[in-house]
Amino acid sequence: MLWRDKLAFVSALVLLLIILCALLGPTLLDDLATRQNLRGRNFPPFSLDRGWAFILGGDSLGRPMLARLIVAANSTILIAAGTVLSAMIVGAGLGLVAGYMGKNISQAIMRLADVIMSFPSLLLAVVVLYVLGPSIPNMILVLAITRIPIYLRTTRAEVLEVRERMFVQAAIVMGAGHWRIILKHILPVVAPTLVTIATLDFAFVMLAESSLSFLGIGVQPPDITWGLMVSQGRPYLNTAWWLAFWPGLMIVITALALNLLSNWMRVALDPAQRWRLEARKTKNV
């Protein structure tokens, strides 16, 4: 089904390449990405005079942009993945309890979500990072807190509908425990929706991290992310446009690939809509 949707297939390949760069980049290119060469300051792109690493140009300290983009992918993907995974686990867990248990427990959990959502997410991130200090763990913590209500509310709404279905009622009649029903019967039905939301949220978290780094309260050197590279390249927009252009382009490409792939996943993981992809297969045959 993925092969038949060309846009989704290309998006998956792009994301796979980015993930490989994030995993292998720091090991293979860390020294090259941090080595300064003042003779190559703001070296223009599309030139091989200084080797393949400078094909995208050099930054203000003579470091190759290509190597820095590959290494920066590690921190960017780490923050986005850590944030989405943490928020999904906590939010989905609370949502399962709120949707299945009694009214009092549900109301208490939903008020917690309302409190979190009452603060603007970017403002909350600015305040917390200013107090705790900018670092990757703190970035993951504050962004995860702001994203928990999304998974909590979605999971609760799904559970409220699923728990009335016949197979859940049959499990209750047969004496199954609450946690067995939640984990074995309800969670598998809710999981596809959560995966689709997580794919979309991954792109949102990347943009949020880039915004915080651009404001100067995100990840700090020697760590590096695409958002930090955009921030560092802002003073050179008139003289060395490539310093901010390439990391900005990587953010756009990754976010676009995630959105295209999430659209495919929404159809592929939904039994009620999967027939559209299967109909394409039958037509092609």
Score class of each variant (00 low, 15 high):
residue 2 L to I: 13
residue 4 R to V: 00
residue 5 D to I: 00
residue 8 A to S: 11
residue 10 V to N: 07
residue 13 L to P: 04
residue 15 L to Q: 05
residue 15 L to F: 06
residue 15 L to Y: 02
residue 18 I to R: 10
residue 19 I to G: 10
residue 21 C to Y: 13
residue 24 L to E: 05
residue 24 L to V: 10
residue 28 L to Q: 13
residue 28 L to D: 11
residue 28 L to W: 15
residue 28 L to G: 10
residue 30 D to R: 15
residue 33 A to K: 13
residue 34 T to R: 15
residue 34 T to S: 14
residue 41 R to C: 08
residue 41 R to H: 04
residue 42 N to H: 06
residue 45 P to T: 03
residue 49 D to W: 09
residue 50 R to D: 11
residue 51 G to K: 12
residue 55 I to N: 11
residue 60 S to D: 14
residue 62 G to A: 09
residue 65 M to Q: 14
residue 65 M to W: 00
residue 70 I to E: 04
residue 70 I to H: 09
residue 74 N to Q: 15
residue 74 N to G: 12
residue 74 N to V: 01
residue 74 N to Y: 13
residue 75 S to Q: 15
residue 77 I to M: 09
residue 78 L to K: 14
residue 84 V to Q: 08
residue 84 V to D: 08
residue 86 S to M: 13
residue 89 I to Y: 08
residue 93 G to W: 03
residue 94 L to V: 02
residue 94 L to Q: 05
residue 95 G to N: 04
residue 99 G to P: 04
residue 102 G to Q: 10
residue 106 S to H: 06
residue 106 S to L: 01
residue 108 A to P: 07
residue 111 R to N: 08
residue 113 A to Q: 07
residue 113 A to E: 03
residue 115 V to G: 11
residue 115 V to N: 14
residue 116 I to M: 10
residue 119 F to K: 07
residue 128 V to M: 12
residue 130 Y to V: 03
residue 132 L to M: 15
residue 134 P to M: 03
residue 139 M to T: 07
residue 139 M to Q: 11
residue 140 I to R: 02
residue 145 I to K: 08
residue 145 I to Q: 08
residue 147 R to F: 06
residue 148 I to H: 01
residue 148 I to S: 01
residue 149 P to A: 08
residue 152 L to A: 01
residue 157 A to F: 04
residue 158 E to C: 10
residue 159 V to Q: 05
residue 159 V to K: 06
residue 160 L to C: 05
residue 165 R to C: 00
residue 167 F to R: 09
residue 167 F to W: 12
residue 168 V to G: 07
residue 170 A to D: 10
residue 173 V to A: 12
residue 177 G to F: 09
residue 178 H to V: 11
residue 182 I to G: 11
residue 188 P to Q: 04
residue 191 A to I: 05
residue 193 T to A: 08
residue 194 L to P: 04
residue 194 L to W: 02
residue 195 V to T: 03
residue 197 I to Q: 06
residue 202 F to G: 00
residue 203 A to F: 06
residue 205 V to T: 13
residue 207 L to A: 11
residue 208 A to P: 05
residue 212 L to D: 00
residue 214 F to E: 00
residue 214 F to R: 03
residue 221 P to C: 05
residue 223 D to F: 04
residue 224 I to F: 02
residue 226 W to N: 02
residue 229 M to E: 03
residue 232 Q to G: 03
residue 233 G to L: 11
residue 234 R to G: 00
residue 234 R to F: 12
residue 238 N to R: 15
residue 239 T to A: 12
residue 240 A to Q: 10
residue 241 W to L: 13
residue 244 A to K: 02
residue 246 W to R: 08
residue 246 W to C: 04
residue 250 M to I: 00
residue 255 A to T: 13
residue 255 A to P: 05
residue 255 A to K: 13
residue 256 L to E: 11
residue 256 L to A: 15
residue 258 L to A: 14
residue 262 S to W: 06
residue 268 A to V: 04
residue 270 D to Q: 06
residue 273 Q to F: 08
residue 276 R to Q: 15
residue 278 E to D: 15
residue 279 A to K: 12
residue 280 R to I: 09
residue 282 T to D: 10
residue 283 K to W: 11
residue 283 K to M: 12
